[in-house]
């Protein structure tokens, strides 16, 4: 389950950022990835929401600090359903 989520997440990031070699780690932040700015951040979130069929609140999106937290958030949302 966790591996699958991680693979899907990487896939979403690769398509959104147009970068096929992108690898993600728990601690990856926006500053570590080229082209990941405030605009693409929101577009990534939209893609993530679509892919995992979840809905984030505005505060949740803004509170995220790294990819690990995003994964945890997705897991908690899906676990809840």
């Amino acid at each position: 389950m966790s591996d699958e989520l991680w693979r899907d997440l990487t896939e979403v990031f690769r398509t959104s950022l147009d970068n096929e070699d992108l690898t993600l780690a728990e601690t990856t932040t926006a500053d570590d990835v080229e082209g990941w700015d405030s605009i693409t951040h929101v577009l990534i979130m939209v893609a993530v929401e679509k892919k995992f069929r979840v809905k984030f609140t505005a505060a949740e999106i803004q509170r995220l600090e790294n990819v690990g937290q995003l994964a945890a958030l997705i897991r908690s949302k899906r676990g809840g359903v």
Binding site: S38, I39, V42, L43
Partner: peptide, 21 residues
């Protein structure tokens, strides 16, 4: 502007895609 006006606004209308941006 980015943190307190643009991003919150964009998040609210994020489903519009690039139009929203």
């Amino acid at each position: 502007l980015r943190d307190y006006l643009y991003t919150p606004l964009l998040i609210r209308i994020r489903n519009l895609g690039m139009t929203g941006v």
